[in-house]
Amino acid sequence: MAKVEVKELLEAGVHFGHLTRKWNPNMAPYIYMERNGIHVINLYKTVAKLDEANEALKKIAASGRKILFVATKKQAKDIVADKVAKVNMPYITERWPGGMLTNFVTIRKAVKKMASIDRMKKDGTFNTLSKKERLQVDRLRAKLEKNLGSISEMTRLPGALFIVDTMREHIAVKEALKLNIPIFAMVDTNCDPRDIDYVIPSNDDASKSIDIIMGQVTDAVAEGLSERKAEKQSEAPKAKKEEKAAPAPAPTPAPEVVEEKAVEAPKVEAEEPATTEADDLTKVEGIGPKAAEAIVKAGIKTYAQLAEANADNIKEILTEASSRMAHLDPTSWPKQAKMAAEGKWDELKEWQDNTKGGVE
């Protein structure tokens, strides 16, 4: 992924903010100056924040979680639909359906309705309907496709949201905050950056500006997906080799050798804990990248450890790490972690689909 230069952002008009009278004071750290009654965004901060956001998006994509892109404004919808479709991620470009995240179970029912209409057309049931009924079903199918077609493969809540213009998509922001879903966003000078986890200060009105930022973001997602694919391909041959390889019989050691090993044994035991690899805790619904980082730092690195942890202790860890995570409800996390530790991924997925943000 090629790093974007300040000159490229300047040529695309990413630095143009809104009129000074329309500004949000919380955007002051990202504003460079005022010129002719218009605020100018500091592009050096834009580059730094874009790199930070890209790194986080890359990790989420590599973990296998979906990133939902939201852009319903005229200038952005075609650009977002075109670029996001190439990386096979869900997107909303027509209208944000209320309860898209907080009432995800109902939204999934609408998507399943669309799939059932497709089955009717394949098995011939559709042709048995009257002309009027066929017309009504076709209209319903077209409406569902327009509003929900891009999220038809999203079977669970997304791992993150990417929003263009947080003022316009304020309902999406509120729903994501309620469910502790990380928010990435292009934030203009008239928006409030306090609710956004990864702020990208930029002009969210010009199509050129949106195009260059979306290009960088989707490249990062594509890189994360390719890393995941490469990792899976490298793991497949190893698994086959392990299956084929028969365990060799251990030779009987001489008494002298046994005595030497007995002396070296404590060293091996001391090194073992350091090799413990951390599991991807973000697969537990309700745990975002920042929450996972705080939990791992506290010594809870694996699904098995999280399954045995006390919800109140986890709450204390999160609150100490950041006041912004104090509202999280970790009650169901040990239960989810137990299913993950036991390899019951289908059961975990079904449970997550039937709950809202991991809260029972």
Rank of each mutant, 00 (worst) to 15 (best):
A2G: 15
E5V: 10
E8V: 13
L10E: 15
V14P: 05
V14Q: 05
H15A: 10
F16D: 03
N24Q: 14
P25M: 03
N26F: 12
M27D: 00
M33Y: 12
N36F: 14
T46W: 00
A53I: 07
L57A: 09
S63A: 13
G64Y: 06
R65E: 10
K73S: 08
K74P: 08
Q75F: 11
D78F: 08
V80D: 02
A81M: 11
A81E: 09
A85Q: 05
N88D: 13
P90Y: 03
E94D: 10
M100H: 10
F104D: 04
T106R: 14
T106N: 12
K112V: 11
K112N: 14
K113A: 15
K113R: 14
M114F: 07
M114N: 14
S116E: 09
D118R: 15
D118G: 10
F126G: 05
N127W: 07
T128M: 09
T128L: 13
S130P: 01
K131N: 12
D138G: 15
L140E: 05
L140N: 04
K143D: 09
L148W: 01
S150T: 04
S152C: 10
L157K: 06
V164P: 01
D165W: 00
M167E: 13
V173S: 00
K174M: 13
A176M: 05
K178G: 06
P182F: 05
I183Q: 01
V187L: 01
D195G: 15
S202D: 01
D205K: 11
M214K: 02
M214Y: 01
Q216W: 04
D219P: 02
G224A: 07
E227N: 08
R228N: 04
K240C: 05
K241F: 09
E242P: 07
E243W: 10
K244A: 15
A248C: 05
A254E: 13
E264F: 07
P273R: 01
A278E: 08
D280Y: 04
V284I: 15
A292H: 00
A298N: 07
Y303V: 01
L306E: 01
E308Y: 08
N313Y: 11
R324K: 14
R324F: 08
H327I: 11
D329S: 12
A337Y: 03
A340E: 03
K349T: 15
E350Y: 11
W351Y: 12
N354V: 09
T355M: 12
T355N: 12
K356E: 13
G357A: 11
G358N: 08
